[in-house]
């Protein structure tokens, strides 16, 4: 009796281990990052990780949703929006990476300005350059379709060379097949 119970337990463990191994096999040498926050001090590390992963031979997808989407707005666009509400939202939220604020110590733009100066001194590429670098290195930059609709952002508002806008299910699929998933 005891032996059969132990066998049954062993069977269950083997099954669970096999399932785990199958799961590992489904994961590619890939990283998917959800870029939710548009602040300079969030998008910066996001893009450093994305470009470094690409340089390390990984497949990289970055899904830009909610405030993160505004990092992909063309620098020459001062604002986005289709009606007064989405225009007002855009006025409160800086579009394009070069106008991004810091999440803390912004001091009316003094913070980002100083950080930019220091970065230049240490030859740390600014997110604007990292965005270009990421594109050159084949990082897939994926805008969130739902955010585009909600915030009234058109494809014309966004920089060139992006992937097709995607939804939550596609973002989940990207994450499911990745060995690393991050939400920043």
């Amino acid at each position: 009796m005891v032996a059969t119970e132990a066998d049954a337990l062993r069977g269950l463990i083997d099954e669970a281990m096999a399932e785990r191994d199958r799961g590992e096999l489904n994961k590619k040498n890939k990283i998917t990052i959800v870029a939710w926050d548009g602040h300079l001090d969030r998008v910066w590390p996001t893009l450093i990780l994305a470009t470094t992963a690409a340089a390390s031979g990984m497949e990289v997808s970055v899904f830009f949703t909610f405030w993160g989407l505004f990092a992909l707005v063309k620098p020459e666009k001062r604002g986005t929006g289709k009606d007064w509400m989405t225009k007002a939202l855009s006025a409160m939220n800086p579009a394009a990476m070069k106008r991004a604020k810091l999440s803390r110590y912004n001091f009316g733009g003094m913070g980002p300005w100083m950080l930019g100066k220091v970065a230049k001194r240490y030859k740390t590429p600014h997110p604007t350059e990292l965005l270009e670098l990421a594109q050159e290195m084949g990082v897939r930059l994926l805008p969130c379709q739902m955010t585009m609709d909600l915030m009234g952002v058109s494809k014309d508002d966004l920089i060139d060379g992006l992937g097709e806008p995607i939804g939550a299910a596609t973002a989940l699929l990207e994450m499911k097949e990745s060995a690393i998933q991050l939400f920043i």
Binding site: A54, A55, S56, K123
Partner: peptide, 14 residues
């Protein structure tokens, strides 16, 4: 030389 993260690795990978 003179480059900072992620510079050196990106230059090497290229």
């Amino acid at each position: 030389r003179g480059q900072s993260c992620p510079g050196p690795l990106v230059t090497l990978a290229r």
